[in-house]
Amino acid sequence: MKQRTIAIAAAAFLCGFAPLIHALDGEEILRQVDRNLNPDSYEMYRKLINVEPDGSKKEFVLYTIKKGQDRMAALFLSPASEKGRSTLRLEDNMWLYLPSVGKPLRITSLQSIVGGVFNNSDILRLDYSAEYTVESSREEEGTYFLDLKARSGSVAYDHIEMVIDKQSVIPTEIRCYASTGILIKTLRYSKTKDFGGGIVRPSVLETDSPLQKGYRSVILFAEIKAREFSDEVFTLSFLPKVGELR
């Protein structure tokens, strides 16, 4: 009788904590995704291409730096009309510095400083685990599926579904939804490449949106390198000088 009681108690204990163990697994996968996509602190060069419905393209080249989970800055190197623009993100705070305006202006995550399908939160993307919590996770035939929920209302997408290649623990497809359940956009990672320094990750990120039919945006990644920065680099005072770090 005593043994049965202990067995029932143990089963109840395990049942009670099973969802927690499950959630912890999902969070661990998400943290692994973050580290596999980029080092904790790094610099990189990106080309962002907006493909319009008529097939015409607009290209932007950005120098980007990031530190930890919540600090990121990007400087436009091209085209000439955008050169010198820089953006900063500190947690949910975002600013844009325009040389013609001469001071940083606050921007919001759903705006887009480059047009196209990518918005500011895509361009200044922090770690997924910093912005989202794992609501549920499952595993099917070499693939993880994570359902993520925004940690706060200021995050651009209310929830996202992430499809992850189990072997590499790298996302292949990310579907981003509004709080109303409307699909805002789908992001697709492809063309995994060895960037050196132990960084092996997709070199192409493509997105389209049912809300912007015919538009497509692509990011090509190059030269991702681990690099340490001081916290003060990610401040408004330093924002016009990000280019001096290159």
Partner: peptide
């Protein structure tokens, strides 16, 4: 399904930093 991404190119060497920079309009 979306079509395969086109072959875009990115030569990061074009953006090597020079001590001099001239911008404007």
């Amino acid at each position: 399904l979306p079509s395969e991404p086109e072959e875009f190119s990115f030569d990061v060497g074009e953006f090597d930093k020079s001590p001099w920079s001239l911008d404007g309009y």
